[in-house]
């Protein structure tokens, strides 16, 4: 089964990062399977962050593509990830 690879780019002292992490964790818990979350310290992964186009934190990268920067509403995040998850599963089928 194909997994949605989520990378959450955070940074030290970033108050909004914790908020987005909570939202992403909640989404992953609800999805139960097919979602893998990796929290990435942007300072430690500067090269990769720059290559992905990350300009600020928090930033969300899904399947190797930057999809949002900042803190979305829970509904917006759910819709965005549902769409990606559907696409991933669609590719598998």
């Amino acid at each position: 089964m194909r997994t949605l690879e989520i990378e959450l780019f955070t940074s030290p002292g970033c108050p909004r990062c914790a908020r987005l992490r909570t939202l992403v964790d909640a989404y992953a818990a609800r999805a139960r399977s097919g979602v893998h979350v990796c929290v990435v310290d942007v300072v430690a992964e500067l090269d990769r962050a720059v290559e992905l186009g990350v300009r600020a934190t928090p930033a969300l990268v899904v399947d190797g593509r930057l999809v949002l920067t900042g803190t979305p509403t829970p509904a917006r995040l759910r819709s965005l990830l549902d769409e990606r998850l559907g696409r991933s599963r669609g590719k598998r089928e």
Binding site: S11, P12, G13, C14, P15, R16, C38, V39, V40, D41, V42, V43, A44, E45, L46, D47, R48, A49, R55, A56, T57
Partner: peptide, 26 residues
């Protein structure tokens, strides 16, 4: 941008010192 948004100081110096060796990927 990180520096401007940071609440606890500026990670610029930390970034320059550490580089991107991936050691803090969790």
């Amino acid at each position: 941008n990180l520096c401007a948004a940071s609440r606890d100081g500026c990670p610029v110096i930390e970034g320059i010192e550490e580089g991107g060796d991936g050691s803090r990927r969790r």
